[in-house]
């Protein structure tokens, strides 16, 4: 009989540990993320999509703007997945590179600005919850994540320019590099 009781306790314990973790997050992470989401959603509504589209049109010509400034601002303002729609202002040749950079900005900025990609927040939060458990501040990690992302995502976009040229040769096609002003 004792054995059965022990077994049942062990079984319930599996879920009790999960439940404790869950309610801990509900009390700490959920309200914080919710407040951030509300503030960011409001800001985005007030600034409007048109302005970011204008920035996108002007960014197409310069790699630094194209793979660093625009995807960073775009992911902040339009969030995932609509940040990818700004790629329509890019010449065909640079669309894959813009995608490569923007896809990564949807994560590296997500630590501080969870509104960008709430559905995949646990890439950051999974690891950061370990940091929190140690009683260390998550923000330090989030800021370094963003800064390293800023540099490496730019390099990622820029490297894609070369891989695109390589695949162009492989497939014997040429993609247009012309910037079209009208979206």
């Amino acid at each position: 009989m004792d054995f059965i009781v022990k077994l049942a306790e062990g079984f319930i314990n599996l879920f009790q540990t999960g439940a404790d973790t869950f309610i801990d997050w509900m009390g700490s992470i959920v309200p914080l993320v919710l407040m951030l989401l509300i503030a960011m959603n409001t800001l985005i509504q007030l600034v409007g999509e048109n302005r970011i589209n204008k920035i996108a049109q002007k960014s197409a010509g310069n790699p630094l703007l194209r793979y660093m400034v625009l995807p960073f601002l775009g992911s902040f303002m339009l969030a995932n997945p609509m940040v990818h729609s700004l790629g329509r202002f890019m010449p065909e040749k640079y669309k894959p590179s813009y995608f490569a950079a923007a896809g990564q900005f949807a994560h590296t900025s997500n630590g501080i600005f969870p509104h960008i990609n709430p559905a995949e927040l646990f890439i950051f939060l999974g690891i950061a919850s370990g940091i929190q458990q140690l009683g260390l501040p998550m923000t330090d990690l989030a800021i370094r994540y963003l800064l390293v992302g800023l540099v490496m995502n730019f390099i990622g976009g820029w490297v894609t320019d070369f891989t695109t040229s390589y695949v162009e040769k492989q497939q014997k096609v040429k993609l247009s590099k012309k910037v079209h002003v009208e979206g």
């Binding site: 609509m82 990818h84 065909e92 669309k95 995608f99 490569a100 891989t163 695109t164 162009e168 096609v173």
Partner: peptide
């Protein structure tokens, strides 16, 4: 990749080039 490039209104040709290109660059990076 194909969906994201679709959002960027990329041409079919661009998607055919873009998918392997981004996969390679992810690997290099």
């Amino acid at each position: 990749i194909p969906v994201g490039l679709g959002l960027a209104e990329a041409e079919t040709k661009t998607i055919e080039v873009g998918v392997p290109s981004v996969l390679y660059s992810r690997f290099l990076n």
